[in-house]
Simulated scan of single mutants.
Amino acid sequence: MNQQFEELKKEVEKLKRERQEQRCYIEGLEKKTTDLQYKSRSSGIEIRNIPHTDNETAPGLIKTVCSIGKQAGMSISETEFRDIYRLPGKNTKGTTAPTTRPIIAEFTIMQTKQNVLSAIRSYNSKKTKVNKLNTELIGIPGRIQAVYVAEQLYSATKHLFYLAREFAKKNEFAYCWVSNGNVFLRKQTGDKQLLIKSEKCLQDHISK
């Protein structure tokens, strides 16, 4: 009986080690996939709350993004765009509310994206809530709506960012942000920033 118990115990320990190795391998693959996805989108920004217009065209969207840059104090040339499009989705029927599916603007180089995001952050930081970037300021008629510009993220990072924000609210973290495809947390001003690579990172912090 004792011998059988020891053999069973060794088998369980072996299975635990194999499971841990497989988990590490999977996490490594997920990170490689994440890095590849980020590199493919590293020069893109996502713009929300720009109403859809009839017969919308890429040149028209480019002019809108250039107007956003101008309002934030940054000149953006039409030649700096690699691609621009509105994300697909169903229009809301039976309502007068404008369609506000996000617009994705991809620049030819990543530095342009960084400059745009930096200019908008600087602009909004100096304004009151009412005067921050909105549709009226960039010449779009109709109901005034706040315009949000952020780094383009793929679905996995969006989900992780959502989980991190929820974690921050529940655990009184003052800061939660995304930079270059990475999610960060900071408890309060002056504290060390925490890089959140996966859901497991959040779970580890919860268990501490």
Results as ranks from 00 to 15, higher is better:
Met1Gly: 15
Asn2Arg: 10
Gln4Asp: 13
Phe5Leu: 15
Glu7Asp: 11
Leu8Ala: 13
Lys10Tyr: 09
Lys10Asp: 10
Glu13Val: 09
Lys16Trp: 03
Glu18Arg: 04
Glu18Asp: 03
Arg19Thr: 12
Glu21Gln: 09
Glu21Cys: 01
Gln22Met: 12
Gln22Tyr: 09
Cys24Thr: 11
Tyr25Gln: 11
Tyr25Arg: 06
Gly28Tyr: 05
Lys31Ala: 09
Lys31Tyr: 12
Lys32Thr: 12
Lys32Gly: 09
Thr33Gly: 05
Thr34Tyr: 12
Leu36Glu: 11
Gln37Ile: 12
Tyr38Val: 03
Ser42His: 07
Ser43Tyr: 00
Ser43Cys: 06
Ser43Asp: 09
Gly44Tyr: 13
Ile47Lys: 00
Arg48Pro: 11
Asn49Ile: 04
Asn49Ala: 07
Ile50Lys: 04
Pro51Asp: 02
His52Ser: 14
His52Phe: 15
Asp54Arg: 08
Asp54Trp: 07
Thr57Pro: 04
Pro59Asn: 01
Leu61Tyr: 00
Leu61Ser: 05
Leu61Ala: 03
Leu61Val: 04
Thr64Lys: 05
Val65Asp: 02
Ser67Phe: 05
Ile68Cys: 04
Ile68Val: 03
Lys70Val: 03
Ile76Phe: 01
Glu78His: 11
Glu78Gln: 12
Glu80Phe: 14
Arg82Cys: 12
Asp83Glu: 14
Asp83Ser: 10
Gly89Phe: 01
Lys90Asp: 13
Thr92His: 06
Lys93Phe: 10
Ala97Pro: 08
Thr99Asn: 11
Thr99Gly: 11
Thr99Ser: 14
Ile103Arg: 07
Ile104Leu: 06
Ile109His: 13
Ile109Lys: 11
Met110Trp: 10
Lys113Gly: 01
Gln114Phe: 07
Gln114Gly: 12
Gln114Ser: 15
Asn115Ile: 10
Leu117Cys: 02
Leu117Asp: 00
Ser118Tyr: 10
Ile120Asp: 02
Asn124Met: 02
Ser125Asn: 06
Lys126Pro: 05
Thr128Lys: 08
Thr128Phe: 06
Lys129His: 10
Val130His: 10
Val130Gln: 14
Thr135Arg: 00
Thr135Tyr: 00
Glu136Met: 12
Ile138Lys: 01
Ile138Pro: 01
Ile140Glu: 04
Ile140Arg: 04
Pro141Gly: 03
Arg143Pro: 09
Gln145Phe: 14
Val149His: 02
Leu153Thr: 01
His159Ala: 14
Phe161Val: 08
Tyr162Asp: 08
Leu163Ser: 04
Ala164Met: 01
Glu166Thr: 10
Phe167Val: 01
Ala168Trp: 02
Asn171Gln: 10
Glu172Leu: 13
Ala174Ser: 14
Val178Tyr: 01
Ser179Asn: 15
Asn180Trp: 11
Asn180Thr: 11
Asn180Ala: 15
Gly181Val: 04
Val183Pro: 06
Val183Trp: 02
Val183Asp: 14
Phe184Ile: 02
Leu185Arg: 01
Arg186Cys: 11
Arg186Ala: 12
Lys187Ser: 06
Lys187Arg: 05
Gln188Leu: 09
Gly190Tyr: 00
Gly190Ala: 02
Lys192Met: 05
Lys192Asn: 09
Gln193Lys: 15
Leu195His: 13
Leu195Phe: 04
Lys197Asp: 05
Leu202Tyr: 04
Leu202Thr: 00
Gln203Arg: 08
Asp204Glu: 15
Ser207Ala: 15
